[in-house]
Design a protein around this nucleic acid. Sequence first.
DNA 1: TTAATAGTTGATAACTATTCCCATGTCAAG
DNA 2: CTTGACATGGGAATAGTTATCAACTATTAA
Lengths: 215, 215
Amino acid sequence: MPLRMTNQRIIIFEELKKSRQHMTADELYGIVRKKMPKISLATVYRNLEVLSGTGVIAKLEVSGRQRHFDSDVAGHDHVTCVQCHKVENVLLEVIKEDCPSHGVMDGYIIKGRRLEFFGLCPQCQKKNRVMKGDKTMGCGCGCAKKELTDEQKKVLQAMADCVGPCAAKDIAAATGLDTKMVSGKIADLKKQGYVDSPERCKYGITAEGRTAMKG
Amino acid sequence: MPLRMTNQRIIIFEELKKSRQHMTADELYGIVRKKMPKISLATVYRNLEVLSGTGVIAKLEVSGRQRHFDSDVAGHDHVTCVQCHKVENVLLEVIKEDCPSHGVMDGYIIKGRRLEFFGLCPQCQKKNRVMKGDKTMGCGCGCAKKELTDEQKKVLQAMADCVGPCAAKDIAAATGLDTKMVSGKIADLKKQGYVDSPERCKYGITAEGRTAMKG
DNA sequence: TTAATAGTTGATAACTATTCCCATGTCAAG
DNA sequence: CTTGACATGGGAATAGTTATCAACTATTAA
């Protein structure tokens, strides 16, 4: 079963190597499409699978939603940013010795190991400082809050129109929405930091909420 | 925002603790349903999320398809079996010291770390030996080969009816299926070990293939 | 050179794990 | 008792990935 080096396979490999990053199938698809617009996403997945099977690239399967692929197959570990989900390399010589990636442990035949750190990347740390000052919602590191639904916007608008903190039923009356639905929405918005509750059962819109409403 | 201890929440927690294993939402759903048949899968997910938020259980997000939850929140690492995807604990005191789970590294503020080994569990090692001797397909460790499709079964049947090794087109003629489709199926079956190719372009059914066909 | 066969592709359907949605239900505080 | 916060069941929606298959291309044996 020879492995045929097709154009698409070559381009996928080259682009992954060129980027010097841990890419998802999707990101790579976006890049490869510039050179080969008709390529299929399935082809990208297939070839990443094939290439990682031969060992020329590494399949990371770092936890989180998407799988990442790495053209650097040498042994190194990873840091993931908990906020923007970027993945970067780290090299920890100390650990290598004490923590072998092959051998036997508790009856298991160990085939490999993965050491993964997670924390906040420098950009997201900076971004958090900026956000507290409410200068911008921009992130620069690929993470963004979800778009608000129409109902959520209505609720926020009603809250903004209110002078002081108001109850769920007031919002319901103002928007014409059902009271129960409104309180559900409020709970969601509170979780996202767009709404706060200065006193029990009374709610107000936050500065962040105002910004979100405009976007 | 008090956390209400509902019946479903209690049962989910109890069962997770009782099992002394790393369970997926789905497995837990199966167990909990025996005590509370009307519970919703969404409720299981929600509560695992809530409980891991409070820290009484741990959300593993070990790599691989499914997320696992653990009632033991103490710091320990994990081994995953690459074959049956079982997850078990390991304790490596040495590493703990050299590999802190909090601090700063390369500009990142580290919030945690995950060390994961992967290899073959003792059961799967044993199973592999048994399978070579063709005594049984049973695994005992939760891993099972996929069910064969009707076409695959047809192809295998035709191959079994054949005396010696036969070509794809013979199979096509015997089954009435398209030749190209047949060669695709054969390739798949070969990957799964149900078919081998004693000489180029000639195929035969393996012992394993015969067993699979019956099931 | 040619026919058979192996390997590959693009398009799209299917799948799986998880999350969202919302009407309805329950609890606790006033 | 009412109100609102918190929860639930069930189904729809989503995201990422995998499977399917007809069409295409390269390779090999004859």
